[in-house]
C-alpha cells in the first residue's frame, strides 16, 4: 500500500524553524513505521535523521510522536496508521536534528533518583539476597521500563516545566523504593517529595496510554505518593 509520511524536519545549521517534509512510500501492511522511515532515508532523502538501534521495542531509541501520540516507530504497524502519517520528534526535549532529540535532560533525572540497589549490609555468605515471590511482585511492573521517554514527553506537567522529574524517573524510583532488599527508601522518597517530584503528577494518564511496555505508570506514581504520605513503604 502507498502511504504519505509527513515528517517534521529541522536542521539547526540550515533551518530557522521546523518545516514539514512529505514523502510517498510503498509499504506492506505489516511493515513497521520504522521500515517506512528507512525507505525515506535510504531511497529518497538521506539527510533524514532518526535514532534507532534494535528495531524490536527493546532498546527504546525510536520514540516519536506518531499521528499526534507518542509511539515507538518499531512497535507500530503501518496498517494501524492510515494512509497519511505524521511523524514529529518527542516533545519537551531540545531537538538536535529532525527526529533526534537531546536525551541528556531525561537521563539526568534518571540518574538523580539513584537507579541502583543500595544495601550496605553484605549479602549472606556464598549466596544472593533472597526475596519472597510476593515481595518481588510489588515492583514487577516497574522493572519493565526501557527508558524510551515516551511517558515523560507525553506529560503536560513536563511540557510546562522541564525541571519536573517526570514519569520515567518515578517509575525507576518505584522499582527500588518497593524492593525489599533496598535500604535507601527514605532517601529516594525524600527526592520524590521535592517540589519537582511526584506532586507535579496531575494523573493525566498520557504516560499510561502511550507506554510501549504497558506499565501502569500512574499507579506507580500513586504508590510513591502514598508511601510519602505514610512515611515509608508498608
Amino acid at each position: 500500500m502507498r502511504v504519505t509520511l509527513r515528517i517534521k524536519r529541522f536542521n539547526p545549521e540550515k533551518d530557522e524553524k521546523p518545516w514539514w517534509g512529505e514523502y510517498e512510500v510503498d509499504v506492506e501492511p505489516n511493515d513497521q513505521l520504522l521500515d517506512a522511515l528507512h525507505k525515506v532515508k535510504w531511497y529518497q532523502d538521506g539527510t533524514l535523521t532518526l535514532r534507532r538501534s534494535c528495531a524490536h521495542g527493546i532498546c527504546g531509541s525510536d520514540a516519536m510522536v506518531v499521528n499526534g501520540r507518542n509511539r515507538l516507530a518499531c512497535k507500530v504497524l503501518m496498517k494501524d496508521l492510515g494512509k497519511k502519517v505524521t511523524v514529529e520528534p518527542i516533545r519537551g526535549l531540545p531537538v538536535i536534528k529532525d527526529l533526534v532529540v537531546d536525551m541528556e535532560p531525561f537521563f539526568a533525572k534518571y540518574r538523580a533518583i539513584k537507579p541502583y540497589l543500595i544495601n550496605n549490609d553484605p549479602p549472606p555468605e556464598g549466596r544472593e539476597r533472597l526475596q519472597s515471590p510476593a515481595d518481588r511482585e510489588r515492583f514487577d511492573d516497574t522493572t519493565k521500563c526501557i527508558l524510551c521517554a515516551c511517558c515523560t514527553t507525553s506529560c503536560p506537567s513536563f511540557w510546562a516545566n522541564g525541571d519536573y522529574v517526570g514519569p520515567a524517573a518515578i517509575v525507576q524510583a518505584h522499582r527500588f523504593i518497593f524492593d525489599s532488599r533496598d535500604q535507601a527508601t527514605a532517601e529516594r522518597l525524600d527526592i520524590m517529595n521535592d517540589m519537582m517530584g511526584v506532586w507535579r503528577c496531575r494523573t493525566v494518564f498520557n504516560c499510561v496510554e502511550c507506554c510501549p511496555r504497558e506499565i501502569n505508570i500512574t499507579k506507580a506514581i500513586g504508590d510513591v505518593k502514598k508511601a510519602i504520605l505514610e512515611g515509608g513503604v508498608r
Binding site: V65, N67, G68, R69, R91, S154, P156, R202, T203, V204, F205, N206, V208, E209
Partner: peptide, 10 residues
C-alpha cells in the same frame, strides 16, 4: 497532543 480521556479530563 492526541491524548485520550485522561488528557481531555485534565
Amino acid at each position: 497532543y492526541r491524548g485520550r480521556e485522561g488528557h481531555w479530563a485534565w
